[in-house]
Design a protein around this nucleic acid. Structure first.
Length: 611
RNA sequence: GCGCCCAUAGCUCAACCGGAUAGAGCAUCCGCCUUCUAAGCGGACGGUUGCAGGUUCGAGUCCUGCUGGGCGCGCCA
């Protein structure tokens, strides 16, 4: 079973072949001119070039070969050589019946399933998530669902940043601030072996004294000092190396950091409906690093440079000019080398990334790994991927950075609140949910729904608003974060989509109450034709989203489908129609609902029953 | 200095290998609730696709240059 576009493409390809022209020119697309056609083929235009003939003549010949196709109500050559096709009502009705009978609602699975890992490039330990973190989690979540739905085996890994320099900074800052913690940490460090009782006592003290809010407050200060004060920085680096060497006191304190962060992250991710299959972090590959470094050394890839150890990843002719601090310009390899071991002996960002690639190869063996991470890290991933290919840790081309743009404020710079701080993701969710509650009361649903359902509905509306506002943008480009737009419920928004689903459900409930059943679909009205054409376009939207790793194709389809339904709803009465028409429209409405809910699910958006 | 990305309606964004009249939403204005949920529907207004060249029968899309903006460039992640 295939969509109309594909079916027609085969027919048009055959018609081209019959005319002695390359069959691949028979590619059919939805028409740019809905007033003239449902589908079109532009193949006669390039054909004219190779065949040195008039495109209109070619189009006419292809049209002649197509005439009589039962699916087509009309087929004609138009304009400069376009082939316009209008699908018959019977063919649309038949296609609608196919989609209605299909658990996948007309969307096909991939031919060969792969094992895919999605790396969410997770947030860092000790920092609350702000609105900028929305993107990687919801894009990653949506891609995971899309890939899984297409038939791949997919694992999503949060991949937290929990093992680097920022941990050394925090250990320093926390012990500086509180003498009792500093004393306990020193004591544990000296002791080396830590008993269960020691551990419990330590966590009791840490729990009492160090919250996420403290870490959030201390980190920016420590980071700033690290930049300006070399001594402070060097101590943080040493602390990082000591943590990575698992000095008992530092390690316990670090485990506390990770714990308080995880509680907040779980709350935020859960609220967004984002689930990770793996809650791994950089620290999880720590034990792989030493053997990996030895392996890189054995393979002759690791070289000493300015006290650090690096892997060169540039090819022989890949160079760039670089300006040195003294103003002179030198030619250096490009891309930059991968820094594997710092001069303090600690693992770097790229080191843990490389070890993670190795870890995944051993544990899961993915055919493909997608990194849903900020576009700004493109160079970094290029370097890590090259190193992984050189070392044989991944098959060339199997690692892919699915970059996305940053979320900027209306001034074009990374988003800040009016007060100059970052807007925390949780605050954003709470704010939008409050607005959804207000709106539900206005609509008179406050009293009708029981409190739990009411709360659940408000939450779903809020999440739909936030996610759809982001996912409707192509992931690659930066966009402006506008609070009003993200918490808007009218127009091209998540709540609009939920609302259309709610209207269908309401009609279906009433139909059921009066004993009316969906029946055979018979397409007749223009609004019905348009709706079925949209239902038919689902497969292509899914293919585009999959191939381009871009959920906005699904978002666009869901919106257009909801819009087509809304027009159908306004133009075609359902319950008051005569029995056969009523049964047909009920079936159309039900099929639309199922596809809409499925598309929303692929975006990670949950539907509601009433709103 | 070198490199990557971006520039489309007043605003925020789309646009399927280069194809007909570049589409949505918001905002503004005008209509539509005694019939299935008005978080809706219909209509109007709104464009020299940053600028200048080039390739092509045809360019928002490809190439070159320029302007403007964002980002990155080994011991943060």
């Amino acid at each position: 079973m295939s969509d109309l576009k594909r079916g027609l493409s085969e027919a048009v390809a055959a018609a081209f072949a019959a005319a002695g022209l390359p069959a691949e020119l028979g590619r059919v697309t939805p028409s740019d001119r809905p007033d003239l056609a449902d589908f079109q083929c532009n193949g006669a235009l390039p054909a004219a070039k190779v065949a040195k003939r008039d495109p209109r003549e070619i189009a006419a010949e292809v049209v002649a070969n197509l005439t009589g196709d039962p699916r087509l109500a009309s087929v004609e050559a138009a304009g400069l050589g376009f082939i316009n096709m209008r699908v018959s009502d019977q063919a649309l009705s038949a296609r609608a019946a196919e989609i209605a009978a299909d658990p996948r609602l007309g969307a096909q699975a991939v031919e060969t399933a792969r094992k895919v890992m999605i790396d969410y490039g997770g947030p860092n330990v000790a920092k609350p998530m702000h609105v900028g973190h929305l993107r990687s989690s919801i894009i990653g979540e949506s891609l995971k669902r899309i890939y899984r739905f297409r038939g791949d085996t997919v694992l999503g890994d949060a991949h937290f940043g929990d093992w680097g320099y920022q941990m050394g900074l925090l250990i320093g800052a926390v012990t500086d601030e509180d003498a009792s913690i500093a004393a306990l940490v020193e004591q544990l460090n000296a002791k080396g072996e830590v008993s269960d009782a020691d551990e419990a006592a330590a966590f009791a003290l840490f729990d009492a004294k160090v919250s996420l809010a403290d870490l959030d407050r201390l980190y920016p200060l420590a980071a700033a000092r690290g930049k300006t004060e070399p001594d402070y920085r060097d101590r943080a680096r040493k602390l990082t190396a000591e943590l990575q060497a698992r000095r008992a006191g530092y390690f316990l304190l670090w485990r506390h950091f990770a714990k308080v962060t995880k509680v907040a992250l779980e709350r935020d991710f859960h609220a967004l409906g984002v689930d990770f299959d793996l809650w791994k972090g950089e620290s999880d590959v720590d034990e792989l690093i030493k053997p990996m470094v030895e392996d890189l050394e054995a393979k002759g890839l690791l070289v000493e440079d300015q006290g650090a150890r690096i892997v060169h990843v540039a090819g022989p002719n890949e160079t760039k000019k670089k300006k040195l601090p003294d103003g002179s310009v030198v030619v250096v390899p490009s891309p930059d080398p991968l820094l594997v071991v710092s001069s303090e002996g600690s693992a770097m960002y790229g080191t843990t990334d490389l070890a993670t690639i190795l870890d995944r190869k051993q544990s899961f063996g993915p055919d493909h790994v997608l990194y849903a991470v900020d576009q700004r890290q493109a160079d970094h991933f290029e370097i890590v991927f090259r190193a992984a290919y050189l070392a044989g840790y991944a098959e060339k081309g199997s690692l892919e950075h699915v970059g996305f743009g940053t979320m900027n404020g209306t001034d074009g710079k990374p988003f800040k609140t009016r007060e100059g701080g970052v807007l925390k993701l949780n605050d954003m969710i709470v704010m939008t949910r409050d607005k959804a509650r207000e709106r539900l009361h206005e609509a008179g649903l406050g009293a009708e729904l029981d409190p739990d359902t009411f709360e659940d509905t408000a939450h779903k509306v809020a999440v739909a608003a936030l996610k759809f506002a982001d996912l409707q943008n192509f992931r690659g480009t930066s966009y402006v974060f506008d609070l009003d737009r993200f918490s808007s419920f009218e127009g091209k928004t998540g709540p609009y989509l939920l609302y259309q689903a709610v209207r269908v459900k309401s009609v279906l409930r009433k139909a059921q109450a009066e004993g009316a059943e969906p029946g055979p679909i018979v397409v007749a009205e223009p609004a019905e034709r348009d709706l079925v054409l949209l239902l038919d376009a689902y497969d292509q939207a899914l293919i585009d989203a999959y191939d381009k790793k871009a959920p906005n194709f699904i978002a666009e389809h869901a919106y257009k489908l909801a819009q087509a339904f809304s027009k159908f709803y306004a133009a075609c009465p359902i319950l008051s129609a005569e029995p056969a028409v009523k049964a047909s429209r009920l079936a159309l409405a039900q099929t639309t609902l199922r596809q809409l809910e499925q598309a929303l699910d692929l975006l990670g958006i949950a539907a509601t029953d009433r709103m």
